[in-house]
């Protein structure tokens, strides 16, 4: 697949953000994922050509970071936090139940291509444990049942909205574009803060 002239113009606009063009490699990889869902060899070649690097240099960067996928993932990529705190609070039990429910394990995708699964590390939301991320949106305070409903909804094309995020869940490719630094206009959706973020503020308002 060759990139369109519009897409190549976006390559250039991403490169123009930086004082030195090699710095654009990470957003360009996110951009390639927003087009193809993963880091394709065409993508690597296009980035290498734009940045005047070898494909080996681009591949070396791509393979270092876990968010860049070497092959297709689901339209809804589900990350279950199994780092210590979430694992203890229920993440392990959720992971086990969901692999069984979907019949897939870590780094696999359902046969309909809708849902893929990943054990993820701490996602900076420990006060909302157990945490599940879908397409890197926050699903806070999860239970086995809520995650079953989440993945079933996703497979039916009707996933519930994130807890602290936009009013509806975007696809993997759509969110990859945001990570490439392109805006989708959804910043004002969702709450300023979740309840746990306000714990101290509320306590101080109670005079504590």
């Amino acid at each position: 697949m060759a990139y369109s002239s519009e897409q190549l113009a976006i390559f250039d606009s991403i490169i123009a953000r930086y004082p030195r063009k090699r710095s654009a490699i990470m957003p360009l990889l996110h951009f390639v994922q927003s087009i193809s869902g993963y880091v394709t060899s065409e993508g690597i070649e296009a980035i290498a050509a734009k940045l005047e690097l070898s494909t080996a240099e681009v591949t070396a960067v791509s393979t270092f970071y876990t968010q860049y996928k070497p092959g297709p993932v689901g339209e809804y990529h589900v990350g279950i936090c199994t780092n210590t705190l979430c694992a203890v609070m229920g993440g392990d039990a959720i992971y086990e139940a969901i692999t069984e429910h979907l019949g897939i394990s870590n780094d696999e995708t359902t046969s309909d291509g809708k849902v893929s699964l990943e054990r993820i590390e701490c996602n900076a939301a420990c006060d909302y444990a157990p945490v599940v991320m879908v397409n890197w949106e926050f699903y806070d305070n999860q239970t086995i049942q809520s995650v079953k409903d989440l993945v079933d909804g996703a497979r039916a094309g009707n996933p519930p909205a994130p807890t602290r995020g936009p009013n509806s869940l975007r696809t993997w490719k759509e969110n990859s574009a945001v990570l490439a630094g392109l805006t989708d206009g959804l910043a004002s959706e969702g709450p300023s803060a979740g309840a746990a973020s306000l714990l101290g503020l509320n306590l101080s308002k109670e005079g504590k």
Binding site: M26, P27, H30
Partner: peptide, 27 residues
Amino acid sequence: LVLHIGAGAYICGEETALLDSLEGFRG
């Protein structure tokens, strides 16, 4: 002011790895 978005690597929080990553290298 430029927002640079990472791609999943704890080590990129270490400040010199972060700088390598921001320059477009493995972190």
